[in-house]
Design a protein around this nucleic acid. Sequence first.
DNA 1: AGGATTAAGCAACTCAGTTGCGTAAAGGTC
DNA 2: GACCTTTACGCAACTGAGTTGCTTAATCCT
Lengths: 145, 145
Amino acid sequence: MAMSEESGSAKTAIKMIQEAGARATAARLTVLRILLSADHALTHSDVEQAASAAGDLIERVTLYRVLEWLVDQGVAHKTLGLDRVWRFNAHHEAISNHAHFNCTDCGRVYCMESLNPVFAITLPPHFQLQQADVSLQGLCPCCTD
Amino acid sequence: MAMSEESGSAKTAIKMIQEAGARATAARLTVLRILLSADHALTHSDVEQAASAAGDLIERVTLYRVLEWLVDQGVAHKTLGLDRVWRFNAHHEAISNHAHFNCTDCGRVYCMESLNPVFAITLPPHFQLQQADVSLQGLCPCCTD
DNA sequence: AGGATTAAGCAACTCAGTTGCGTAAAGGTC
DNA sequence: GACCTTTACGCAACTGAGTTGCTTAATCCT
Ligand SMILES: [Mn+2]
Ligand SMILES: [Mn+2]
Ligand SMILES: [Zn+2]
Ligand SMILES: [Zn+2]
């Protein structure tokens, strides 16, 4: 049986969605594929542009809902950039705690998947810690001279 | 010479602004005093409410500009909450690197001044690190049962 | 006092993200 | 396959934080 023109990540995208026990709609597949093939976290409008560039235009609100849905399903996750814009990322592997790198020049956000800094913290009384995130700032490979 | 009805932080607020070599306007003093007397970081509207509660109402845009100005002067600093809203904080002491604690229940943000977690990070090639921030999530004293 | 500089006030705007609601597209049942 | 139920999409209108431009009012300086 011949493989369709969609190879690699395509199959994975469908699987990831079906494993969530939900409908693999065109919008969800398109968005997840875009996220999976990106090397950095994408904004709503990054995804919108990527989709329409590929001929799959997705309605604004649908896109917002799909992105949020992917996060709820645990298939993607989001981070807030310093420009107050959410950026989304999907991983082939299970998502573990990791740091995010914000480029101060181009604004791109990268997930540093293998980077899970550990540190000891002692909070003042009556604070209950649930989670700790590390956010890094600097220049990304695109913006290094 | 009798002390005016403004004690403690009032004097400090004036000093802090004058040391920046700028005009100590009513709006700046009011805002800085409010920030100095808060035990957590305040949003624009937190400050607006606090000011008008004290009878000093400040125009929306002026408030935005004053807050930004205080940050530029190094007198205050701001952090982005998970609700995409900036929160401002002023310190009597010089501002050093510190972690921020976000309450997942009430949304308040606290500066953990004495908490400066250190950790080792090795970035992928061509990433140039400039700064690292730690953001903590959990329940604050107000929200702990 | 008089002119230059800086801040405040106001209105209109931007932009990411939401909400409500009607319509279309699956899924499931017989 | 027709029929009904559930879920997703599409569109329009809305929200709310933060900005911009421009005019008026305070300060500062000589
Ligand atoms: Mn990530
Ligand atoms: Mn702080
Ligand atoms: Zn960059
Ligand atoms: Zn709280």
